[in-house]
Amino acid sequence: MAVRIISEDNRTVAMLSGEIDHHSAKGMRQEIDFALRESQPSELVLDFSEVGFMDSSGIGLVMGRYKLMQEISGKVIVKNPSDHIRKVMRLSGIDRLAAIRNG
């Protein structure tokens, strides 16, 4: 499974894995959004530790979840992106919307 979701208190953690492209992003998006609607958390953590590749489809994925979390006054944290994924994110300026954390 490309997304494993853990919901606890006010926090939803989506552990993403594999490659994020136009083909895989749709399924990931649906699973995360389902969990968000169910638990309405104040914080969404997108954990990229197990993501080996991401193109700009991943930007759409983060950006879309950012908008969704804004609607419920929540925030998005991007965790452990690889150097290359960070480079793609920087290009979009998404690092100014979502906090990027390592560890």
Partner: peptide, 14 residues
């Protein structure tokens, strides 16, 4: 609507 970010060519270019 499909969450395309509009950054495809920007990625290729950079």
């Amino acid at each position: 609507a499909e969450e395309r970010s509009g950054l495809g060519f920007s990625v290729m270019e950079s």
